[in-house]
């Protein structure tokens, strides 16, 4: 069963999100008010090892578990979509205190109102998909 390893990885991710308190509405407020190093520390201590790990994977041309070379696709070099989309997401992140991963982790934690956030996010994603050709990218 291929699904099992991804479910297990997801479980570990969910536990990390809760124990790190990165799913907390309070922590996101603290971050956007620059009142603690906490969330910046989490992001920084994920990204710095991340940079080293990816650099090593590239340098030693490592392969994944199925033996295929690991490739990193560069993101396309436009800027409007990243900035505009980023700002819109940031507005939603601050008000709900959750990004897409934590929305689902919090549902499992027992916050039933996250169902509304999930419904909204699916509607938002669908609306983007429908309007895509009319938006500046």
């Amino acid at each position: 069963m291929k699904a099992v390893k991804y479910i297990l990885a997801g479980i570990v991710f969910g536990i990390i999100m809760v124990k790190s308190e990165a799913v907390s509405w309070y922590r996101i407020q603290e971050m956007f008010r620059f009142q603690s190093i906490f969330m910046y520390g989490i992001i920084g201590s994920a990204v710095i090892p991340g940079i080293i790990i990816i650099a090593l994977i590239k340098k030693f041309k490592l392969r994944d578990v199925s033996g295929l070379p690991i490739q990193f696709l560069p993101k396309d070099r436009r800027w409007k979509k990243y900035l505009f989309g980023g700002i819109i997401f940031g507005l939603g992140w601050a008000v709900t205190g959750a990004c897409p991963g934590p929305i689902f982790v919090l549902l499992g934690y027992g916050y039933g109102v996250m169902l509304l956030v999930i419904a909204g996010s699916l509607l938002g994603t669908f609306t983007y998909g429908a309007l895509r050709d009319r938006l500046p990218h």
Binding site: K81, I87, V95, A98, V117, A119, T127
Partner: peptide, 20 residues
Amino acid sequence: FLGGGFLIGFGTRYAGGCTS
């Protein structure tokens, strides 16, 4: 909740990704 979720869904797809 609904509006915030909408912004998350619209914004992440527009930007091509979220925090992760």
